[in-house]
Simulated assay, not measured.
Amino acid sequence: MKPLMVATIPGGIITILIFFLDYFRLQLVDKFLMFAAFVIVPLVILLLRYDEKNKHQRVIYAALKLLQYPAALLALASVMGSKTWGLGSTAIPGTLSLGWLLFTFLLGIYGLTVIVNRKGRTEEIAIGTGLVYFFIGGIWFTLYQYQFDLFQAKPTTHALSSVHFHFSSAIVPIFIGLLGRVMTKKSWYPWVVAVDIIGPILIAVGIIFSKPIEYIGVTLFACNIAIYTTYLLGYLRNGSVQNKSSFFLVLSCMAFYTIVVVSICYPLLKNMFSLTIHDFIPIYGALHSFGFVLCGLIGWVYIIDSLKEKYNKEQQE
Rank of each mutant, 00 (worst) to 15 (best):
N117K: 11
Y110L: 02
E123I: 12
K65F: 08
R58Y: 09
A36I: 12
L46P: 03
F24D: 00
S82D: 07
F103K: 08
V39K: 12
T95K: 13
G88E: 08
L67F: 14
R121W: 05
I18T: 06
P42S: 03
I40H: 03
A77T: 07
G108R: 14
M34L: 15
I125H: 06
V59M: 08
L33A: 08
K53L: 12
I60Q: 00
P42F: 10
V41K: 09
M34I: 09
M80D: 02
G128T: 08
K65C: 10
I92V: 15
P42R: 13
F24Y: 12
G99R: 11
I18H: 05
L21C: 06
F20V: 10
I60R: 09
A37P: 12
I60E: 01
L26T: 01
F19D: 02
K119V: 05
I18F: 07
L33T: 04
V41G: 00
Q68W: 11
E124W: 15
D30Q: 14
L101R: 11
A75D: 04
G88T: 10
L67H: 07
I45Q: 10
M34A: 04
L87I: 05
I115E: 00
L48H: 06
A37I: 13
F19S: 02
F38A: 00
F32I: 15
L66N: 07
T113P: 04
F105K: 09
M80H: 08
K65R: 15
